[in-house]
Design a protein around this nucleic acid. Sequence first.
RNA 1: CGGAGCGUAGCGCAGCUUGGUAGCGCGCCUGCUUUGGGAGCAGGAUGUCGCAGGUUCAAAUCCUGUCGCUCCGACCA
Length: 576
Amino acid sequence: MRLSRYYLPTLKEAPADAEVISHRLMTRAGMIRKLTAGVYNYLPYGWKAIRKVEEIVRREMDRAGSLELRLPAVQPADLWIESGRWEHYGKELLRFKDRHERDCCLGPTHEEVITDMVRGEVRSYRQLPLSMYQMQTKFRDEIRPRFGLMRGREFIMKDAYTFDRDDAGADESYRGMFEAYKRVFSRLALEFRAVEADSGSIGGSFSHEFMVLAQTGEDTIVSCTGCTYAANVERAQLPPVLDRDETEPPAVEEVFTPAQHTVEELAIFLSVEAGDIAKTLLFNVDGRPVAVLVRGDREVNEIKVKNLLNAENVRLALPEEVTQWSGAGVGFAGPVGLKVDTILADFELDARRGWITGANKDDAHLKNVCLHRDVKNVRFADLRTAVDGDLCPVCQSTLKAMRGIEVGHVFKLGTKYSQSLNAVFLDEAGKEQLMIMGCYGIGVTRVVAACIEQNHDTDGIIFPPPMAPFEVFLLNLDPKDQAVNAKAEELHDFLESSGLDVLMDDREERPGVKFKDADLCGAPMQLVLGGKSLAKGIVEAKDRRTGEKRELPLDRFAEAFEAWKKEVYAGWKMDV
RNA sequence: CGGAGCGUAGCGCAGCUUGGUAGCGCGCCUGCUUUGGGAGCAGGAUGUCGCAGGUUCAAAUCCUGUCGCUCCGACCA
């Protein structure tokens, strides 16, 4: 491809509203343009990257035995009413009426549609298992779209669905997809972790998220330094403490702490560490008060509270509720004498006996509180959000926290949809059974954004070869010079015929402009040919990732290039 | 949903307080010079100042409404 015939509008400056690096670089490199909030045009250069990702995903899905199909974007409300999600999905589901006043929606996901299709055709266990996938534009009307392609309203997703006759089969389907996902992200040369994720409200099921590691990630995950355990912090389990200081403190003592509402204020006021304070949070759990105690420097994980109590709704108590339940204003609740039936304490508070807590009385706290001695109905459990340095629940090694971008999610659904939509089949005994389902998503457009978040420098994007729209940028520095031009054309044709995507910069621009654009657009390999290099009988080769330069002799170009390419590719951790 | 901010040339912005008929940088077009890390000079094109009302002799500027976009927040005591 010749740049003079291509559409690659690059920008020196990014639009003011682009906050994150991938958004800025994708805009500057002529990959995307915003049409409206959270909705983007994919320009040829951006689309080509998306296509490369799609192609790898497609190969691995096919290899895993899944069948590609294509479902509609517009869906009838009836199905969503039937599954119960017309009510529950919320405003992210974009709804509208057609000319006959029929309720419709734009598909944010396709469980309903595919389950409807399968239930209409599949009658016998002989037709199972089934695995199908599609790549398609989804629409989710996010409250606040942001970060360019990272959280758009319209985006491309690969979604797959499996239908099995029994639990064992469903687990196998799940494992197959899990492995396929690992291959996809490995082949894309992304640094990622597959982590345990919260399975939400669907009991008995499990799920994993695939996280691309990047400082700018919205999620925090923990990964064990000693074993393979890795989990989203929302989910990461923490073990009970092993080292206990059983020294019994002196009797509880009330201290005057005027207007010390927060842990930070209180710690300074009493000259102690936040970790010496046990904070008491009151929650409204399905309408009932529940007290949760964690160390002052920790955070309660509401999901754990919800799961532990098998609750539907967990929310922090309103100020009025706090006053009603604790007898004091916000900031002074404590476990001693608290008239709340359920008092939970994080495992960590079992590590020693003396804690500072609220006194259930305005402007007062208690010292030397021993939960075992001074509180009758306290129950210890894993209740807080994991942090860097916590111990692994599996092997007790240290957990390391890192930021990640969720690019894939595999989910064992069980019978959630087959039940609500009545997707059944007859087993060998002629008995009607519910299909066991799984669903699996990859945010294709987000993968591209996440890749750029992970692979860039101050000059621009650094594409890993598998995702690069063009593996090679060939800079023809003197397109007006007959000899240079002829040689550049020859190199271009040779590289293209060897199966590479090549973009030759044949514009009549100054060299500096070409260097800047090449770095910005991030092809992993740059070749530079100008009057000087031609006179020396070489072409200059630059590894975009390392910046390392090499001179390739023109008379032995084919083999020299092949050797260099191998070197460049070896720098990327690509499992193929 | 609550709060804040911004809409002026393709992009980044100034002008608005104190009304007088629109400017800067980059980009774009033409010419000459230049040519290995975002060139120089000269000339040129491009704006219903988001939209709709209002005030005024006169509105980018003041007022009202409206639309769009962006950011922050949605309660960890």
